[in-house]
């Protein structure tokens, strides 16, 4: 088992490298940061452009540039941006912003999604089940960039109703907020609610559908009948035997769910003015910066790696048939 997980890990690391290289390659092929520079008015002098080209190592072939960049990454140097800032300097704060958003959103989303799925499976064809079905259908059909602004509008209503601007949704904390550590946390939480909700809603809709059908599969199974025949109460049968087994297929979904999350996260950050990794990708593409794009890709790849590997571990932990 350990050997297997180790092999998987190696496989994921290789995938990460290939993915990052591909991103770097594609970016270097399609981007032309110098062209942007030349559009400036007044146009910069020839010498400046030549210097820029040299600074960006445009004289070297792309694979070599990538190896250079990767060599730097190993030492914590992620290269410089087109505008000659240190990429690494910006990386940590942005990562913090994204992770804060993702982790809370995912945790809330997975837990509520599983609960909602289980409840609608147990109460199949009751009103609550239909409501849950309609809810997830509508949410899954609505892109984040529609949900986001709608939630903003909703938050405004709530604030109106409360009579104070309780829910905030631009940025991640009040600029120049000055207060105790606790007050600062409270302030941040108020900024966190609406964006987290945006991410969580999607995750809930996604996981609840799968959890519902996984649970329905289990509900019809013989071993639940055996458990009832033993004399366990319905509640115990449903949770100890039913839910426990129905969680197994969910483990494999986490890796897939993450893809959804990262794309969704890009929109969420953009809409709520959080300067995270997703936002950075947009900036990177707009400024045609291969180093930034490669760095973001590496971040995404590592996240997927961790979640994929975690779902392998989780799967093995949940299902004894896999352990052997």
């Amino acid at each position: 088992m350990i050997g297997f997980l180790a092999r998987r890990l190696v496989n994921y690391v290789i995938l990460c490298l290939v993915a990052t290289f591909l991103a770097y390659l594609l970016a270097s092929l399609t981007f032309d940061p110098v062209a942007i520079l030349m559009q400036r008015n007044p146009p910069p002098p020839e010498a400046a452009i030549a210097a820029k080209r040299l600074a960006l190592h445009f004289d070297q072939p792309i694979p070599l540039r990538f190896v250079h960049w990767l060599g730097g990454v190993v030492h914590g140097d992620f290269g410089r941006t087109v505008t000659d800032h240190n990429v690494g300097d910006e990386l940590l704060p942005r990562m913090g912003v994204s992770l804060r958003l993702f982790l809370v959103g995912v945790t809330v989303g997975v837990i509520l999604g599983v609960i909602l799925g289980v409840v609608s499976a147990i109460r199949q064809y009751k009103i609550s089940d239909y409501a849950a079905t309609v809810f997830s259908f509508v949410i899954l059909s609505t892109p984040v960039f529609v949900i986001g602004p709608l939630l903003k509008t909703g938050a405004l209503q709530v604030n109106d109703w409360l009579g104070t601007e309780y829910l905030k949704f631009t940025g991640e904390q009040t600029p120049g907020f000055d207060g105790s550590w606790l007050a600062s946390l409270g302030d941040r939480l108020r900024y966190l609610i609406v964006p987290t909700l945006t991410i969580a809603l999607q995750q809930i809709a996604y996981y609840s559908r799968y959890q519902r059908s996984a649970m329905l599969d289990v509900l019809g199974s013989d071993f639940l009948r055996t458990a009832s025949a033993k004399g366990l109460t319905r509640r115990r049968v449903l949770f100890k035997h039913g839910l426990r087994t129905a969680l197994i297929p969910m483990a494999t979904l986490f890796a897939f769910g993450f893809g959804l999350l990262i794309v969704g996260g890009t929109f969420t950050e953009h809409i709520f003015g959080w300067y995270g990794m997703g936002d950075w990708l947009i900036v990177g593409v707009n400024t045609q910066d291969a180093n930034v794009v490669a760095t973001v890709t590496l971040f995404v790849a590592v996240l997927v790696l961790i979640s994929g590997w975690l779902s392998d571990v989780l799967y093995a932990a949940l299902d004894p048939r896999v352990r052997v």
Partner: peptide, 19 residues
Amino acid sequence: VDLLLVLPSFLILAILSPA
């Protein structure tokens, strides 16, 4: 497919968009 999981198509298309 594994690669696509690591490199979402949204990302690829965003990178390719200038082209």
